[in-house]
């Protein structure tokens, strides 16, 4: 079964959905048809608003929620540094689930790089 924090975010994900007028969109899709999309509203290099969608496992959904919570109000150069190590502060990253964590993380970073 999953770590508690994963279940909490999975059962009550934050910032779910799309933004009306995003300045940036980041997507990532896997061979097995799992997909993540992040919508950013970035002004003056600061994330003013963020929403996301994921069709994937509970890890992918929870990580999307954790990332979106963290990103609000942060500067994009800080956010661009986020990696697996950062997420390990929240929960132990099981090797089996690395791909599931990569899915939202890649989508998130893809969105930030399109400026």
């Amino acid at each position: 079964m999953y770590p508690k924090i994963i279940i909490e975010h999975f059962m009550h994900p934050k910032n779910v959905g799309r933004l009306e007028n995003p300045s940036n969109i980041g997507t990532y899709e896997t061979l097995s048809k799992a997909k993540a999309v992040f919508y950013f509203l970035i002004e003056d290099d600061i994330v003013k608003d963020i929403k996301y969608q994921v069709a994937g496992c509970p890890y992918a959904i929870a990580v999307g929620s954790i990332l979106s919570e963290y990103a609000k109000g942060k500067r994009i150069f800080e956010l661009a540094k986020i990696n697996k190590k950062f997420l390990e502060k929240y929960f132990p990253v099981d090797e089996d689930k690395e791909e599931c964590i990569n899915l939202p993380l890649r989508a998130f970073l893809n969105g930030l790089s399109k400026i």
């Binding site: 061979l31 097995s32 994921v54 994937g56 496992c57 089996d96 599931c100 899915l103």
Partner: peptide, 11 residues
């Protein structure tokens, strides 16, 4: 079956 999000698990 648990078809993992991104893993290459066989459907």
């Amino acid at each position: 079956g648990s078809a993992c999000a991104a893993g290459s698990k066989y459907p």
